[in-house]
C-alpha cells in the first residue's frame, strides 16, 4: 500500500532576484509544468503583496499560492491594527518567517524570495528556506534552475573569483546600475532556458525603484 503524499510535483519555473543601491529586481519565467508536460505558458509567479513588496515562491505550487494568501491576510490585519501603516520589508520578511516556521512539522514546500525597498532607500532581497530560515542577500535564485543561475550571479553581481588585473587584488564590488542588472537577469534566464527543460516561454521582470514599479516581459524559448 502506498501512503498518501500531500505534496504534488506541479511547479512554477524558476525565479531570480538582484538588489541594487536604489533598486530591486525580481524575475521569474511564466512556464508552469508537471512532469514532462506544460500546464501553462503564461502563469505569473510574481505576487504583488502590496506595500511595494513582491514575492515568488518556487516549489509545490499549491503551497506557494497558500503562502501568498497567508501573507496577504497578515498584511491586511497589520493595516487594520496599525492605522494603515505601510509594512516595511524587514517586518514582512519576519512575518514570512513566522508563517513558514509555524508549519515546522508540515512545511510549505517552497523557497520564497521577497523584494522591496528597505527603510534606508536601498533595494532589498530576502530569501527563505521552506522552514523559514531567512537572510537579506545581494542576489538569489530559486526553483528548478537555481543551480544554473546562482553561480552566474555570484560571478557577475558579487564578482566572485575575479581579480582586478591592474592591482592584482580581488575585484571591488561596485553597485550595479539598473540596466546592467536587467541585462544580467535576461542573459541568466536565456542561458538557463537552453539547458533546463522546465524553464521557458516568457520571462517576467519586476523592477522596483523609488519611483515605483515597472514590469517587463521578455521572450524565452518555448520548446
Amino acid at each position: 500500500m502506498s501512503r498518501f503524499n500531500p505534496y504534488g510535483d506541479s511547479s512554477g519555473g524558476s525565479s531570480l532576484a538582484i538588489a541594487g543601491a536604489d533598486f530591486a529586481i525580481l524575475a521569474g519565467d511564466t512556464r508552469h509544468s508537471t512532469g514532462f508536460s506544460i500546464d501553462s505558458r503564461d502563469q505569473s509567479q510574481i505576487a504583488d503583496l502590496g506595500d511595494g513588496l513582491f514575492l515568488t515562491s518556487n516549489g509545490f505550487s499549491a503551497d506557494a499560492k497558500q503562502l501568498v494568501d497567508d501573507l496577504r491576510t497578515q498584511i491586511k490585519w497589520y493595516h487594520h491594527n496599525n492605522n494603515d501603516h505601510k509594512l516595511s520589508i524587514s517586518a514582512a520578511a519576519r512575518t514570512t518567517m513566522m508563517l513558514l516556521y509555524g508549519k515546522r512539522f508540515f512545511p510549505y514546500y517552497v523557497n520564497p524570495i521577497m523584494i522591496g525597498m528597505a527603510d534606508d532607500g536601498t533595494g532589498a532581497v530576502y530569501s527563505f528556506d521552506p522552514l523559514g530560515s531567512y537572510d537579506r542577500e545581494p542576489s538569489r535564485a530559486a526553483g528548478h534552475a537555481s543551480e544554473l543561475l546562482m553561480p552566474f550571479l555570484d560571478n557577475q553581481v558579487t564578482f566572485a573569483n575575479q581579480l582586478d588585473p591592474q592591482t592584482g587584488e580581488p575585484r571591488k564590488r561596485l553597485d550595479l546600475d539598473l540596466q546592467t542588472a536587467v541585462d544580467l537577469v535576461k542573459d541568466a534566464f536565456t542561458g538557463a532556458a537552453e539547458r533546463q527543460v522546465q524553464v521557458g516561454d516568457t520571462l517576467e521582470i519586476v523592477i522596483l525603484t523609488k519611483d515605483g514599479v515597472d514590469r517587463q516581459y521578455y521572450d524565452l524559448r518555448r520548446d
Partner: peptide
C-alpha cells in the same frame, strides 16, 4: 548544472587562447 549555467551565459564564440583561459577558469571556479 552549475557548469551549464555558467558556460551558457559566459561562453562567446571565437575566443583567443588567453580569453578562453579566463572564461573556462571563471566557469569552473564559480
Amino acid at each position: 548544472n552549475q557548469l551549464y549555467g555558467m558556460a551558457e551565459s559566459l561562453y562567446e564564440k571565437d575566443m583567443s587562447p588567453e580569453q578562453l583561459f579566463e572564461t573556462i577558469s571563471q566557469t569552473l571556479l564559480c
